[in-house]
Write a protein that binds this DNA or RNA. Structure first.
Lengths: 101, 101
DNA sequence: TTATCAGTTTCACTTTAGGATAACATTTGT
DNA sequence: ACAAATGTTATCCTAAAGTGAAACTGATAA
């Protein structure tokens, strides 16, 4: 029962990837101090490591590549249930979550 | 830098607590095979360990006790950003998330 | 150049979280 | 029993997430 915990991330220690042009509403919001998430990068990196395209991932998960793109770029904040579907159906993994005190 | 990872949970291995009477819409949905989450229990247990009431937690987080109750009972699926607020502002901890392959 | 593939963004629509408030229920203490 | 504290549920609202379709951009290749 060998399990590897990939990519443990603290949802606090990073800045979101650039999105859009400076001056746009979305970009401004992202930079305005809303909570930023590394989740997009986590999905993105895992997908690439598994050699999948957004479209292939979307098909496995039962969604569209446009939605995957939005998640990877932190444009939309996916639900945990959606993240779980991506990880489980798309990657064959298991999403875990914990509180570090 | 001693850190403890409390309550690492896999979002897959449990059934939600009972909610409402059988036959209600919410109850039916919960039992109908939607993804169920242990997150409510995680928040609930952590709150109790810290000796807080829902109202005290709500105040720290900037929300209401009714909302905390809904989260703890998995009636509403909190966003990750909201979970993070609860963990950080309410518990003084840090929310972490990972993919187990 | 022209396809093709991968990814991004826009547009539009539906659903839900999040919140306010208040009523109701349950537990706990005296 | 009663009261107080704590937790649950109901109702209603609004802003935002969730989502798909399709247009668009960028890169790569033939």
């Amino acid at each position: 029962m060998k399990t590897t915990n990939k990519n443990l991330i603290s949802l606090d220690e990073f800045k979101v990837k650039n999105y859009g042009k400076p001056g746009t509403k979305e970009r401004d919001e992202l930079e305005a101090g809303y909570e930023d998430f590394k989740i997009g990068a986590l999905i993105h990196d895992t997908r690439l490591e598994l050699g999948m395209t957004q479209e292939q991932l979307a098909e496995k998960v039962g969604t569209t590549k446009s939605y995957i793109s939005k998640i990877e770029n932190n444009i939309k904040e996916a639900r945990i249930s959606t993240l779980q579907k991506i990880v489980k159906l798309g990657f064959g993994g298991q999403l875990e979550l914990s509180i570090k005190m």
